[in-house]
Computed example of a mutant assay.
Amino acid sequence: MPVRTDVYLPPARRGFRWIARNPGEPRGVGDPQPPRADPSTPRYDAIPAWGLTDVVDTSPAEESRADRMADRVGSLLTIAAVLYGLAVFAELGRYAILVYNQTRLVPQLLLRLSDAAVYFTQLGGLLTAVLAAVAAVCWLLRARRDLYAREKRTDPRSRGEILVGCAVPVLNLVMPPVYLLELVRRDPRGSRLVKIWWGFWAFSGFLLVVNAYWRSRPGLQAMADGVLLSAFIALIAAATAALLLVVIRRIEHKDWRGEPDTATRWVPVPRSVLENAVPEKAAAQ
């Protein structure tokens, strides 16, 4: 760079001067000519190592604890239905022992086996039913979330409202079927299944109140009748669990084993087609 001097000096005594040149002219004596641009098309001698490739993480997102619990709803409902079904036979066996004991003595080993069968099936069915209820609520939340996401709408019911409706006594006899009916509003058969399950669900709640009252009555006959009532309650509980599993599979478009349900369409075939098909089959044989 030229050395700056006082700008108030005359131009002849300043340390630099301005010279105008054309853009292509050299800047000084002996300066090399600027390189000319290559008129050929630019190209790479090798494949470049950089690019605009977007690396997408395709690994599945980790499921939450609620989603993992929802995946177990089918197995838990099945176990609960089986245990309550066995409880029916255990209670009937106990009633038969009570009838037999009116005239004869019952071996102590048989009584212990009967008590163990009743406690195992009833208590195991109750614990499994509680876990199945928790899994069913988790499944309900996920099903509603997926449905409204596909429809690109917002669920009108909040998560807290659904949890309260499923957990508060008496209220949980009314609201869970309403939540399920909102999922199957466009499926007449699914709505019918939900209403049938609703009847069993409400009736089972009524039977629990009746059972609590019946057990407070004194006397051996009341105790024997309570055994039959317990067997009937276990039967309704098994049917309720099985029906809820059918409803869930219907909403998921799966069969009772959890496999994807293939749609079957029945088409009426004219009688003439069937009559023509029989001679052709006989001729082929």
Rank of each mutant, 00 (worst) to 15 (best):
T5A: 09
T5R: 07
D6E: 13
D6T: 05
V7W: 05
Y8S: 15
Y8E: 12
Y8V: 02
L9W: 13
L9M: 07
P10L: 15
P11N: 03
P11Y: 13
P11C: 04
P11A: 15
A12H: 13
R13F: 05
R14S: 05
R14K: 14
R14C: 04
G15Y: 04
F16P: 00
F16N: 06
R17E: 09
R17F: 01
R17S: 11
W18V: 15
W18S: 07
W18N: 11
I19T: 13
A20W: 05
R21Y: 07
N22A: 08
N22I: 01
N22L: 07
N22W: 02
P23T: 03
G24N: 14
E25T: 04
E25S: 12
P26T: 02
P26M: 01
R27S: 08
R27T: 05
G28A: 14
G28K: 03
G28N: 10
G28D: 07
V29R: 14
V29T: 14
V29C: 05
V29E: 15
G30E: 10
G30K: 07
G30H: 09
G30Y: 02
D31C: 10
D31N: 08
D31P: 06
P32D: 02
Q33M: 12
P34C: 03
P34T: 10
P34L: 06
P35W: 00
R36M: 07
A37M: 13
A37Y: 00
A37F: 08
A37K: 13
D38V: 01
D38I: 01
D38T: 00
P39I: 00
P39L: 00
S40T: 14
S40A: 11
S40L: 09
T41H: 02
T41E: 02
R43W: 06
Y44C: 01
Y44F: 13
D45W: 01
A46K: 09
A46I: 01
I47E: 12
I47V: 12
P48S: 06
A49L: 13
W50V: 02
G51H: 04
G51V: 03
L52G: 06
